[in-house]
Design a protein around this nucleic acid. Structure first.
Lengths: 151, 151
DNA sequence: CTAGATCCTCCAGTGACTGGAGGATCAAGA
DNA sequence: TCTTGATCCTCCAGTCACTGGAGGATCTAG
């Protein structure tokens, strides 16, 4: 084989912060901010002090982005990441945490489904050019959709 | 009939801001903040300048709270409320808006369901005291769970 | 060897609340 | 009626999670 071909899998060349931002949809200052609050580990630097990233960073950052979009706060994400980083280790304490998050997730799904049904009804009404009253508010205002009752 | 009895339905006595806060789980400063940014209409005042509310306020505020918890931003809630306030009127323009929100809601449901399944798997693993690897990150990191592709 | 893109740090600004200071008002009991 | 504790008012400063600009270094393509 001639000179050009290297090993079968291309060695995973490190990403710049800009490339990471592009691949994840997270803005550069936000990436640095996540590092500063410890959601992302401190990125290794090049000789000229630039941060470098790899595929793991992409997955971790995408996870953070999705979780934030879904309304989880940073502290919850930090806990979720810690559980993922440390699979099954202090299972006893992580269990309660996971169950709490699970209940919260299920509550969100239920409320989103109620909202979805109502918005869908609105869209269908519009499609038929019918003027029918809108119950979006009632749907989300209804306390029955809450799984927890601490309010 | 004696003197005490009034009309069949008790006249809906107005709520104080504190009572509204209790019924909705929204803190008093937050209620005032929502009024200041126009999410809630300016509350009528008593002679001594205190805000008064009714059942409509309770429903509207509960809606806002749930929508915020579900991660919708204030601007989206403002639009949703405007549609609800003005049922079927400028149907043509509201339609696109509603469809956009619908797609967003469905995307959230899909991602939350994926997350739920994974967290559930973790919890079950814990319950059996099994040490199995955790894929929460992979689940939410997976770009396939996104319905939009602008990133 | 430049010129433009990209990176660095630091710091100030934004959106959506959250809470304290200082003062007025209300409602219930002595 | 008078007080006293709860609740309300406005204003303003602080927090969380970003977001963006200033000023300067480094990289990369022509």
């Amino acid at each position: 084989m001639p000179t050009m071909s290297s090993l079968p899998a291309t060695p995973p060349s490190p990403l710049t912060i800009g490339a990471l931002a592009k691949q994840t949809g997270v803005k550069i200052p936000t990436i640095r901010y996540y590092e500063s609050i410890g959601l992302l580990p401190e990125a290794p630097r090049t000789d000229s002090n630039r941060r470098t990233y790899d595929g793991g960073s992409v997955r971790r950052l995408r996870f953070i982005r999705h979780a934030r979009e879904l309304g989880f706060e940073v502290e919850a994400i930090r806990q979720l990441l810690a559980m993922a980083d440390d699979p099954g280790q202090p299972c006893r304490e992580a269990d309660l945490l996971a169950r709490t998050h699970l209940a919260e997730i299920e509550s969100r799904i239920a409320r989103l489904e109620a909202l979805r049904d109502e918005v869908r009804r609105m869209v269908e009404g519009c499609a038929q050019d019918q003027v029918r009253s809108c119950h979006v508010i009632e749907v989300l205002a209804d306390h029955a959709h809450c799984l927890h009752d601490r309010h």
